[in-house]
């Protein structure tokens, strides 16, 4: 199981990075999701995979082979954070399509390296 999970983590990370190196910005954003899934899986598995019962306890105590609850809590946190970041990234994607009219990654990012534009002429308000 450990080998399987490690390979899965590696594969998800590799695919995620590959997607982030894509020409289209959409796949870059989705790559973040895949990469995040891989990392979440890694964090989860860091608590080991020897649990035979969910981490619920009763008055009598915890099951002897209960799954490690700590990484579960950590991953839960990470999943929600990842979702929030994904939505933001998606929002950036949408907005840059609206503003740039392109979704080709390098064309969009090259704009930031253009020389700074002059400030608009000062209006009457100043």
């Amino acid at each position: 199981m450990e080998i399987l999970v490690s390979l899965t983590v590696g594969a998800l990370v590799a695919i995620g990075i590959w997607m982030m190196l894509d020409r289209g910005l959409l796949r870059v954003v989705l790559g973040v999701v895949v990469l995040g899934n891989g990392v979440n899986l890694a964090v989860f598995s860091a608590g080991r995979l020897d649990g035979r019962a969910a981490a619920f306890v009763t008055e009598a105590g915890a099951p002897a082979l209960a799954a490690n609850p700590l990484p579960q809590a950590l991953v839960l946190t990470a999943i929600v954070i990842g979702f929030a970041l994904f939505v933001f990234a998606l929002a950036v994607l949408k907005r840059s399509w609206e503003l740039h009219g392109k979704v080709e990654t390098d064309l969009v990012t090259a704009v930031a390296e253009e020389p700074a534009p002059d400030l608009p002429p000062q209006g009457d308000k100043a």
């Binding site: 999970v5 490690s6 390979l7 983590v9 590696g10 594969a11 990370v13 590799a14 695919i15 990075i17 891989g38 890694a42 598995s45």
Partner: peptide, 8 residues
């Protein structure tokens, strides 16, 4: 991917 898998 390989590095992460190995560390993992």
């Amino acid at each position: 991917g390989a590095v992460v898998a190995a560390m993992m």
